[in-house]
Amino acid sequence: MSIQHFRVALIPFFAAFCLPVFAHPETLVKVKDAEDQLGARVGYIELDLNSGKILESFRPEERFPMMSTFKVLLCGAVLSRVDAGQEQLGRRIHYSQNDLVEYSPVTEKHLTDGMTVRELCSAAITMSDNTAANLLLTTIGGPKELTAFLHNMGDHVTRLDRWEPELNEAIPNDERDTTMPAAMATTLRKLLTGELLTLASRQQLIDWMEADKVAGPLLRSALPAGWFIADKSGAGERGSRGIIAALGPDGKPSRIVVIYTTGSQATMDERNRQIAEIGASLIKHW
């Protein structure tokens, strides 16, 4: 067993022997301040990774656009098919120029040779490549099948209805392509620590998230040296922004954090800054 596999296998073990965790309302004060600064709703939840206990939450059962955070769930569904012998990570998928959609920095470079399922998941999570996500959605049967996968996990809230990039439209009061912070946090925890996926697939999923290259201005910008984070960000229309993450000190994750916002007129930089400040408060009061 590799060191990384050992780390993920012992996530519940280490967490069980940690000192009790206590909620700190100071972080919620910052979440509410972010709402004021952005002029928009902000949803927040913080779960203990081992027990699933909610440590703090704000608007945990209000719907927010998922945006690209759905790509972690998508690759979880792909990995479940791999575990069941219905898919192979090494299978190569070929596609054409007509398949390319807006923001496809990886797939646009491989029109000639195609990409493997493993490479597509890596591109979808680490670079948020939209064509990679659409190609992977095709392998599982489309958005409705991802929703069905989530329902089978016990998540009857999260739903995907459309493809990239239309799913980022974020129309107010439109339930399409949305989740709730509580539902997303619980589902992410199941994917990373539950028995739904094999140990190898859980490790692969967290490795992809740990290698995320496009979430630097968010929670990662607030992390002290030595902290662990595996995350996936999302951005959408109407001032929408979000991030889902597993993080913790001492090089291992111990909490799940989900943050979503929508309806702001603020710039992307300002949305990023507010999420980073929430992260800084979380870490300060850990």
Rank of each mutant, 00 (worst) to 15 (best):
Q274C: 10
Q203D: 06
A182D: 08
Q274L: 12
M67C: 12
N272C: 05
G90W: 10
V82Y: 08
P217S: 14
M184F: 08
E164V: 00
T107R: 02
E277L: 07
L218E: 02
W286L: 04
R162P: 03
S221E: 14
K190D: 15
L47R: 04
K284D: 11
E166T: 11
Q265Y: 10
E61R: 08
Y260C: 05
L192S: 05
S221W: 14
F58E: 05
R238Y: 15
V117R: 02
E56M: 11
R118P: 05
F70N: 10
P65Q: 03
G263V: 05
H285N: 12
L73F: 06
A276M: 13
G263Q: 11
Q88V: 14
L167M: 12
K284F: 07
R255D: 00
Y44F: 06
D48H: 06
V106S: 15
D269I: 07
M184V: 09
S51C: 05
L79Q: 03
A222G: 08
I283M: 12
I45K: 01
S96R: 09
N130W: 00
A133W: 00
K30M: 13
V72F: 03
G141S: 14
D250Q: 06
I93H: 05
S51P: 03
M127V: 11
D174E: 10
I259V: 11
E166Q: 11
D207I: 10
M184R: 00
R202Q: 15
L38W: 06
E102V: 07
T262Y: 07
T267I: 08
T198L: 10
E210H: 14
H156W: 12
M180A: 07
E61W: 09
D129F: 02
E195L: 04
Y103V: 09
V106M: 15
T116N: 15
G43N: 00
E62F: 06
D207H: 12
R162K: 09
L89C: 05
T116K: 15
P65V: 05
N134R: 02
A200R: 14
T131S: 11
E56T: 10
R255V: 10
L167Q: 03
W208N: 03
L219T: 03
R81H: 09
T69H: 15
I125A: 04
D174S: 12
Q204C: 15
L197R: 06
H110L: 09
W227M: 03
L199V: 10
Q203N: 07
G85R: 08
R273C: 12
H151N: 12
A183G: 10
T107Y: 02
T187L: 07
L120D: 00
L89V: 15
A200F: 13
T138L: 15
G234H: 00
V214D: 03
T158P: 01
S57A: 09
V29W: 07
T267V: 10
K30A: 08
R92C: 13
P25C: 14
S57R: 12
S128D: 03
L282W: 02
Y95M: 08
E277H: 06
